[in-house]
Amino acid sequence: MIHLLMQKRSDRHKRQAGFTLMELLIVISIMLILMLIAIPNMLNLRSSANETSAIQSLRAIYEAQIQYQTNYPANGFACSLQALGGESSSGAPSAQSAQLLQHDVASGSKAGYSFNIVNCTKTTVNNQDMYTSYEATAVPQAVGKTGHRGFCIDMTGEIKSDPAGGTNCTVPLQ
């Protein structure tokens, strides 16, 4: 009799030791629902962070352009990111490699955005080309994934955006 009671207790413990298939399916379903909610939010956060990084990088380009114009007044503004960039290990700064911009932005790509300097206006003074205006652009490498909006800045320092993700920047940032 004692042996039967012990066996019943043992059987009860065996049944309570694990989860049933139904319980596991319910837990997996709940986890899938939570993931379906969380993943799009995470992607939107990443896009938002990339957009913030692009805006900050455009501000860095603007500041580098001001420094470039001050350091190389005969050249005016730089008309390429490479002229604003450069490595300190390659020698002293020059008009072709001013070492004013960090390498990733100077290479044209950072945080899911592509950067470029376009629409340069040049005049010739004393047989020297001088750039008097420019526009720096930042466009998402994959619109809707790495960012939603494109951004532009010019020599006035005002950043504008293109809600379609291109370079048709007409909406001022607020």
Rank of each mutant, 00 (worst) to 15 (best):
L5K: 09
R9Y: 14
S10H: 10
D11R: 08
D11G: 06
R12P: 00
H13Y: 13
M22V: 15
M22Y: 09
I26A: 15
I28T: 15
M31R: 03
L36H: 07
I37Q: 03
L45A: 11
R46N: 11
S47A: 15
T52S: 13
R59E: 12
Q67C: 03
Y72C: 10
N75S: 15
G76D: 04
G85K: 01
E87P: 01
S90C: 04
P93H: 07
S94C: 06
S94P: 06
L101T: 06
V105N: 00
V105H: 01
K110Q: 11
A111F: 07
S114L: 10
K122N: 09
K122W: 07
T123F: 05
T123H: 03
V125A: 09
V125C: 06
Q128N: 15
Q128S: 13
Q128R: 13
M130Q: 15
S133W: 02
Y134P: 04
V139P: 00
V139I: 09
Q141I: 12
G144W: 05
K145W: 10
K145L: 14
G147T: 02
D154E: 05
M155D: 12
T156L: 12
K160T: 08
S161D: 05
S161W: 01
P163V: 04
A164K: 12
A164I: 02
G166K: 01
C169I: 03
